[in-house]
Amino acid sequence: MDKLMNLKLKVWRQDNADDVGRFEEYEAHDISPDMSFLEMLDVVNEGLIESGKEPIAFDSDCREGICGTCSMVINGAAHGGQKGTTACQLHMRHFSDGMTITVEPWRATAFPVHRDLVVDRTAFDRIQQKGGFISVRTGSVPDANAIPVPKDQSDLAMDAAQCIGCGACVAACKNASAMLFVAAKISHLSLVPQGQPERERRALAMVKQMDDEGFGNCTVTGSCEAVCPKEISLDFIARMNREYGRALIKKGTI
């Protein structure tokens, strides 16, 4: 086993949504390089609980990079800045002994902080509810391959469908723009036959909800793509822009 590490943490603490919040410093002792970042926080939290202090609140669920809940900005980079990696999949071996690590919540007006590192990401749910689905008849399961989907289209749709809704794109963007997320969702369904009936309505409605939630506007900085744990491509934002233009011309309004 590799040498255990001792680290200093500077963590954002905020008791509730109304609290102004502050940074607090902690020490993390005997951290194995094989631990994930969240396991390291677990160790720190156990220490805090033992000494009668309030543990650091953070979100996590799957801990295998698929649920998208483990939102945290580590040393200024959403999810820590390793290519295609969520915070739960980030190993402590990327950090060096004695280092100070700053941990902050996502910062976006549309993602208010609930507590410590936990932010309210229901804005994404509301965007999804406006069109990130297809309406299908109920009834028996359709035959497999009843609807032919061209391979290249389905590959591209699956690339977009990778998005786990983690919000890192918003967190990293200097404008707190949600366009990478929305682009992934709109593109995914616009690329497959099942998504065609609601194609225009979806683009118009999801973009409108995105605006109403108070996310910023894309200025093509590429920060989102760089931190996205699912490596969603900026190309999808161009595709969303096309989809939106198409929907405006064909339909005009939701």
Partner: peptide, 30 residues
Amino acid sequence: LTSENREARTVEYDAAVEPVDAHRRGDIVA
């Protein structure tokens, strides 16, 4: 657009951007 962008991010991060893969800094920072 610019004023909306300012309103969308009113609190800046405290830490400077130092990703674990240092060479990715240029891609992450605008």
